[in-house]
Simulated scan of single mutants.
Amino acid sequence: MADLKAIETLAFYGPRNISKVSRKLQIPTETLRKRIKRIYSQSFLRFHVNVCHANLGLVTGVVFAEAVPGYENVLLDALKINDFWTFLGRCYGMFEGCVGIFPIPRERCCQFEQFISEIERAGLARRIQVFWTSFFHPTPVLCKWFDERTKTWNFDWEKWIKEVKSADANSLPLLAEPEVSVKADEIDVFLIKELEKNAAVSFKRLAEKLGISPQLVGYHYYRHILGRRLLESFRVTIFHFGEDSEFSFFIFNFDEFEKLAKFTSTLLDKPFVKTLGKILGENKIYAYLYFPRSEFRTFLKALSKLVREGILESYYYVIQDLDNSAREIIPFQCFKEGRWVYNHKGYVNLLRKFVVEKRLIEKLAHKVHSKVEEPAKTRILMGKTATTN
């Protein structure tokens, strides 16, 4: 429990605020440093940042793409042609395909949808959906549902169902549609992309990369990045449910906003929630969730009960293929003179060229396969003739 509490508090205050975290936990700073070092050595622990895309002038699109059978990896490569992806991965479950996260310049959302439609028209996907979301990341509450006495996790789904029914339906600020505008300059965007890789990187190291003074880095960090809320929160990556666990993507549908608000409010402090997002203009929630495998089916049973009781209208999900997933930093190279450069024509042309090349390769492979099979068939026919004779 002490380790989980330390990680939870660091995720709230950030890895730079070791002194504040130590005071909050009421332990010496040096003891905390040693504990973090030990956790690093014994498990996969990383600290990153969650970018507030809206304050960078970006709207976050979540893409669910059902692949044409046999074209799953081709579909993944096609999606990577667009520079603005920050997550792409294979998935399976209710369909086999890909899931992607694309923060897109607000004025280019229609062009991005055209790019996605081009992939579908090319025959690489059976169906592709783009959900524009108010992306947000709840601060992880890792200690909740953990039994200190037995050292085990206690997933009380019946209690959670009751919590959903009795939750406060008052509108959450997180569910409001965000105001989207660029509040950053080029130095800010460069610093953000470095913080995405390592939230604890020193100002000195950042200054060396930019060729500016550590004092100027500090000014941009405190006055711009924190002052203008270019960062939403800190993200901690740790597999707190152990190796036998998995990540999944959900879309939850509701017939009323009030029910959506109740449901969402109960997820904000749960240890299995990684990311949430209100689908703009619809009574839908996107969720990126993390479970022990033994609890996933039990969660689905809880969802089914919420459907039967009229709280949740419907849902669907896919499970992340961890062996075929990748994260990327914001496309800082596309931010120039205070605005994002989105090369729509370039992406479409690259996509069309990519599709043509893939089809040529398939044709050549088919010809080679046919030539290999031909002598084999001839030998079989000759053998049959010899036997007949």
Rank of each mutant, 00 (worst) to 15 (best):
L267M: 13
I187Q: 06
N198R: 14
S41V: 00
I212C: 03
L351E: 01
H344G: 00
L79G: 03
I119N: 02
N17W: 11
N198V: 08
Q111L: 13
K345D: 06
I361S: 14
E337P: 07
I27P: 01
A326Y: 08
F332I: 03
G338F: 05
P178G: 08
L216Q: 12
E72W: 01
V51R: 09
K371L: 13
R379I: 14
K204T: 07
K144S: 07
A199Q: 06
E120Y: 07
K5I: 09
E208V: 12
F87R: 12
F250I: 01
I311Y: 04
H137T: 11
G123Q: 01
T9D: 04
D188S: 07
E313Q: 12
F112L: 05
T133N: 03
K159I: 00
L32P: 06
G70M: 05
A65L: 04
E328W: 01
L231S: 11
F112S: 02
K270W: 00
F291Y: 15
P15D: 03
S314C: 04
G123M: 05
A169F: 09
L364D: 13
E282Y: 09
Y342M: 10
S43C: 04
K80Q: 10
F190R: 14
I18K: 07
R327D: 05
A326W: 09
Y40I: 00
I18F: 11
Y286M: 02
K151E: 13
G97Y: 04
F250G: 00
K371A: 07
G277F: 03
Q42R: 15
A11I: 06
F190M: 07
L79Y: 07
T9G: 02
E120S: 08
R205G: 00
K336I: 15
G242W: 10
I18H: 07
E374Y: 15
Q129D: 13
A302Y: 03
Y316Q: 09
K197H: 06
I330C: 03
A78R: 02
N154Y: 15
R379F: 14
Q333K: 14
H53V: 08
S166L: 08
E373R: 15
V201G: 02
E243M: 13
L350H: 07
Y288T: 01
L45C: 06
E148Q: 13
Y221F: 15
Y219A: 12
S213M: 13
Q129H: 13
L191I: 15
P292C: 02
Y316G: 08
R229Q: 12
E113D: 15
T388A: 11
R108S: 12
V348E: 03
N324M: 10
R228W: 04
A199E: 06
